[in-house]
């Protein structure tokens, strides 16, 4: 084991990190740091190492370190990812560019204001809540064919950052929010007509350009783009009396 307690052979890699501190590092600039990356080292591990040994002022969001909490999303070489499961050496580049998520307002360095995400997402009812989950191998009660997961979304903001519409339209509900409305519809949380009315607008399902960047980028396989298309069908169907 090496001196930093991390396993395996080391490869030197440069991280080029966007820095911004309103009033002091303003306008933003890029700072570069060297890390000795091992095969398991994630971008988040590298940021932790930089903060511990080189620059204690580096600000970034993180909590669970295993893609469960959704706090550590950022752009790595231009892609919106969870930094805790993005390995440094998998980038296959000598210089890795690390930047904050787009769309949401920048607070400092790699930290964005998740209030913007919450504002778009909240009307559908952020519902992490669940009683329990079930294994596909376990028997389902009579009348239930299979269980559907609704709680995969970790509210990380990646889809909002990746979405070309949300980037330019602050009132667009955005992929995660629309996926949450879909979830409410499937669960039967609230009146069907109210849910469809909430998404039947240019800020809702009709604002989507179908770029599918959200589904592509989602680290939890929520596939928000597909769910938006499903919601569109439901909205149209609800307007055709004979199609119920």
């Amino acid at each position: 084991m090496s001196n930093n307690g991390r396993p395996g052979p080391k490869t030197p890699v440069t991280l080029k990190i966007l820095r911004y501190k309103p009033g002091s590092i303003d306008p933003p600039r890029y700072d570069t740091f060297q890390v000795d990356a091992d095969p398991l080292m994630t971008v988040l591990d590298a940021l932790e190492e930089i903060r511990a040994t080189e620059d204690p002022t580096l600000a970034y969001r993180h909590s669970c370190h295993h893609a469960s909490c959704g706090t550590c999303a950022m752009k790595v070489n231009g892609k919106d990812v969870l930094s805790c499961v993005t390995k440094v050496l998998d980038q296959k580049s000598d210089v890795i560019v690390v930047e904050p998520l787009g769309t949401m307002p920048l607070v400092a360095d790699l930290v964005v204001d998740m209030g913007d995400f919450a504002r778009r997402y909240e009307p559908a009812g952020l519902s992490f809540v669940r009683e329990s989950e079930y294994l596909t191998e376990a028997q389902t009660p009579e009348g239930v064919e299979r269980y559907t997961r609704f709680e995969s979304c970790i509210e990380c903001g990646i889809c909002l950052s990746a979405c070309p519409v949300a980037n330019t339209n602050a009132s667009f509900i955005g992929p995660a929010g629309l996926a949450a409305w879909y979830r409410s519809l499937q669960k039967g949380d609230g009146e069907r007509a109210d849910i469809l009315a909430a998404v039947d607008s240019d800020c809702g399902v009709w604002g989507c350009h179908g770029a599918m960047e959200c589904t592509e980028a989602c680290p939890s396989q929520v596939q928000p783009g597909d769910l938006i298309m499903y919601l569109r069908r439901e909205v149209v169907k609800s307007k055709l009396p004979w199609a119920h």
Partner: peptide, 11 residues
């Protein structure tokens, strides 16, 4: 010093 729950709490 960092994000809330970024020490042991979240991990």
């Amino acid at each position: 010093r960092g994000e809330l729950t970024s020490g042991t709490a979240g991990r």
